[in-house]
Design a protein around this nucleic acid. Structure first.
Length: 458
RNA sequence: GGCGCGAUAGCAAAGCGGUUAUGCCACGGAUUGCAAAUCCGUUGAGCCCGGUUCGACUCCGGGUCGCGCCUCCA
């Protein structure tokens, strides 16, 4: 079976057929960089990074772009509060974002376009939209006239009437129609801005994605991803801008949206304040734990992020690493995982829970394997885990890594030597004493055929 | 008000119109000086009410509850 993806636009699972199989094009909405990101912001990154890995396995070349929004009112507010230039705020948090995403084993996208480096492209697109009768200038603003587009609202499945009926915002006086949205807005003195045919100003939020996609990936791309809260208005407006600027030619063939990360059943969001930053979670949990936890639910469903989930995920990873530790001397050989149930699960609209279940089956098979089967089974497990972006560390390092204040490896080894001496003398009382002492410090001893191993337990 | 999503065992979470999901936890057994790890096994499920069907957790209808979008948001 080939790759199937759920397309938000058709609201159906569809077979994936790229426009150009020699170069698949994917774009995912990145962050607005004005503070540290929370774990909910990390979900689309991990999800589409995983899809990126799957696509790379299936196609010779995949061009994956994930933008950075570095001009925005929230960035301006932070800059003003700190008395610095917006560039200082945005470059600082873009760097922090890069750091957090790398800690979650996300690959670098092929392209990371920045909004402020595409102002000309945005102005050009805005001009084209005005010329084609889809936009108008008013009081220093340029607005997109949604009524000029027949299919407006199709992605988010809503009609203009319905939207306006439920509108909770006042309509700006310069809008000809309440649903029109801003392509370009004026900047006051002291606010960041760029010269344009409509005066000094800055782009509206939706415009950058349309302009950057056109510039770097072309008029029509294969996959566009993001959180489901972007369906409306962001992605709806992107479609409007791009399709209308390109005389109705298709913009995106497959729209994909991930569900939310919840805390206590409620959406985590910066505005609600109930968020957990990736940075603070990384203090307690390895990036692989966060990543596997995010992949433990199907990407389209909402998931609750709890300490229990993370602890359970940590236990699972310990299990995988324990299986690998037992075969650490066995070399990895090249294997083809495309025919495995694991890879089939990923090809079925990125069914990561199913894939993880297959990972458990692989680990179990490895644990039970005869010596002559181990190399192949180990190689399969590692190749599969690579596809999910986990099990990237050495088992030894994973299982023995300690934090500050933990008993040192040297001290543990010394006690093990003493205990082995006691064992040879059958001094079981002393043996158990040492075991208990280490256990109290979170260290578990495992007596095996080839001597005593140890690992740390949370 | 409009549009949409979900409800699966103690917890997490999939597939599937009929045959064990899986993981964590719990319990039993093998193994071990004792453990750990591992293996084998057990308990335990599908919100409610109808309908379709030989048969429904799975399809259809109606409820109930929870969540989301319609405003910045991954």
């Amino acid at each position: 079976m080939s790759l199937q993806v759920y397309n938000s636009y058709s609201r159906k699972k569809e077979a994936f057929t790229p426009l150009d199989a020699s170069n698949v094009k994917m774009y995912v909405c990145g962050p607005t960089v004005y503070n540290l990101v929370h774990i909910g912001n990390a979900r689309p990154v991990v999800v589409f990074d995983t899809l990126f890995r799957v696509l790379q396995r299936l196609y010779p070349k995949v061009t994956y772009a994930r933008n950075i929004t570095d001009v925005d009112d929230k960035i301006m507010k932070v800059a003003q509060d700190e008395g610095v230039d917006i560039g200082e705020v945005s470059s600082r948090y873009a760097a922090e974002y890069q750091k957090d995403m790398a800690a979650l084993n996300n690959l670098e996208p092929t392209l990371v376009p920045y909004a402020t480096q595409h102002i000309d492209d945005m102005i050009n697109m805005t001009q084209a939209l005005i010329e084609k009768g889809h936009a108008y200038a008013a009081e220093g603003h340029v607005l997109f006239a949604v009524q000029s587009m027949e299919d407006y609202g199709k992605l988010s499945n809503r009609s203009l009437e319905d939207m306006l009926a439920g509108a909770r915002v006042e309509v700006a006086p310069y809008k000809k129609y309440a649903g029109d949205f801003v392509l370009w807005k004026p900047s006051a003195d002291g606010e960041p801005g760029w010269d344009s045919p409509w005066g000094k100003g800055r782009p509206g939020w939706h415009l950058e994605c349309s302009a950057m996609i056109k510039k770097h990936l072309g008029e029509t791309i294969d996959i566009h991803g993001g959180g489901k809260d972007l369906l409306f208005p962001h992605h709806e407006n992107e479609i409007a801008q791009s399709c209308c600027a390109h005389d109705g030619r298709p913009f995106v063939n497959y729209w994909m949206h991930n569900g939310f990360v919840n805390i206590d059943g409620e959406k985590m969001s910066k505005s609600l304040g109930n968020f957990r930053t990736v940075r603070e979670l990384l203090e307690k949990f390895d990036g692989e734990v966060l990543r596997l936890a995010l992949l433990s639910a199907h990407y389209r469903s909402d998931m609750d992020f709890s300490a229990e989930l993370l602890e359970q995920t940590k236990t699972n990873l310990d299990g995988f690493y324990t299986a690998l530790r037992g075969v650490s001397e066995i070399p990895v050989e090249p294997v083809n995982i495309e025919k495995t149930d694991f890879f089939k699960a990923l090809q079925d609209d990125l069914n990561t829970p199913q894939a993880i279940s297959e990972l458990h089956a692989m680990a179990k098979a490895l644990n039970k394997a005869a010596d002559n089967e181990k190399a192949e089974l180990k190689s399969h497990l590692i190749a599969a885990a690579n596809m999910l972006g986990v099990l990237q560390k050495s088992p030894e390092a994973w299982l023995t890594a300690g934090g500050e204040g933990d008993i040192t490896a040297e001290a543990i080894d010394a006690l093990i030597i003493e205990r082995n001496q006691a064992r040879s003398e059958k001094n079981w009382a002393r043996c158990d004493e040492i075991r208990d002492e280490l256990k109290a410090q979170g260290v578990v001893l495992e007596d095996g055929k080839e001597g005593t191993r140890w690992r740390r337990e949370a």
